[in-house]
Simulated assay, not measured.
Amino acid sequence: MPPERDWRAPLNETGDDALQYTDIAIGYLGRNTRYRAEYQRALGRVKRGAISADDATAALVDRWGISYHAAPGAAFDRKLAVARPDLSPASIILAPAVAGIGAGPLDLAALGDIRARIRMGDVLHVILADPDGDEHLCVCGSRHDAMALMVPIEPAPFARLASAERLCRRLSGMAAGPPALRPPPFRREHLLTLLQVLDGRRAGASQRELAASLIHPKVRHYTPTEWTDSAERKCIRRWLKEAVELRDGGYIRLLRGG
């Protein structure tokens, strides 16, 4: 796990306009005890040479829907988190083009700063660094052949279309622009606060201490009866329930921008 931090301190991501839903989703999964244990086992196997970091990552992504890259030197690096493309409309899918439509090969050199290349089975996952929010390409087949953008027929294709447009802008030498799946400020703040709720509970904080630290310090001075009947107690109980649900599977909704 990353170094322990004071759960009362705002998370480093607060105020980060480039923060995407996938970045927050991996934060919740990273606090899941079963995932952490499985990830640590994967890191151990990679260190022993029993499996490659890319193959370990592929297995984790298939099992959990998203995972940190299982490279020991970059463990728990949020910028190297990879999501399943069917779950994340932020993923840009490139596939072999149909013959005769005039498509060309993918020139990785034209994409700018590449943060990572992760091979997962037959798919090359390329993470493009961008100050407005990284882009994730899923390249199916050989990039040296004619390639085309693939937009699956799905109930809500607009976020995926917006992600594809970012790549087109980049390939045209333009700024990619902001990603489609960024939580608005209020939603972002709430989701990050719920991460602090999980961290506080893991550190042994009581519901009252959580409320005093995250809602209002006046809670510390409530009488037992005032605390029992307080709006802050009801609120922190709702937050706890919501945070645990997101940690234990609800993060998948965040991948889809929910």
Results as ranks from 00 to 15, higher is better:
193 T>D: 04
195 L>Y: 01
114 I>E: 02
35 Y>M: 09
156 A>L: 07
84 R>N: 14
32 N>I: 05
166 R>N: 09
223 T>G: 15
164 A>R: 01
35 Y>W: 10
68 Y>C: 05
149 L>E: 09
142 S>Y: 03
108 L>S: 04
253 R>I: 01
194 L>R: 05
212 A>P: 11
4 E>N: 05
181 L>F: 04
235 C>E: 04
240 L>M: 14
124 L>W: 00
242 E>G: 03
79 K>V: 06
22 T>I: 03
197 V>H: 08
119 R>S: 06
194 L>N: 00
210 L>E: 01
119 R>Y: 00
162 A>L: 07
241 K>D: 12
19 L>A: 12
191 L>E: 03
138 C>A: 14
249 G>L: 07
95 A>E: 15
232 E>T: 12
70 A>Y: 11
178 P>F: 02
160 R>A: 11
107 D>N: 14
185 P>H: 00
152 P>R: 00
102 G>M: 10
53 A>E: 12
148 A>K: 07
145 D>H: 12
135 E>M: 15
127 I>N: 03
30 G>T: 11
172 S>W: 09
16 D>R: 10
152 P>C: 00
188 R>Y: 00
138 C>I: 00
81 A>P: 09
239 W>M: 12
14 T>L: 12
33 T>D: 15
162 A>P: 06
42 A>W: 07
241 K>S: 15
44 G>L: 08
167 L>W: 05
177 G>F: 12
241 K>G: 15
63 R>L: 11
193 T>M: 14
96 P>W: 08
121 G>I: 04
223 T>M: 07
105 P>R: 02
82 V>I: 15
235 C>M: 06
95 A>N: 08
241 K>V: 12
48 R>D: 15
81 A>G: 10
210 L>C: 08
90 A>W: 02
210 L>N: 07
66 I>E: 02
170 R>H: 01
149 L>H: 00
158 F>W: 11
171 L>T: 03
238 R>K: 14
32 N>Y: 09
160 R>C: 10
161 L>W: 05
129 A>S: 14
57 T>Y: 09
183 P>T: 02
100 G>T: 09
100 G>R: 03
204 G>K: 06
63 R>I: 06
234 K>I: 02
43 L>E: 07
156 A>M: 05
245 E>N: 11
63 R>C: 06
240 L>K: 03
176 A>R: 04
47 K>L: 15
249 G>V: 10
85 P>A: 04
10 P>R: 05
39 Y>S: 10
11 L>D: 04
245 E>T: 13
87 L>S: 09
21 Y>G: 03
243 A>E: 05
91 S>E: 08
34 R>F: 12
149 L>Y: 01
186 F>L: 01
211 A>I: 10
140 C>Q: 15
71 A>R: 15
31 R>L: 11
157 P>I: 05
184 P>Y: 00
123 V>C: 07
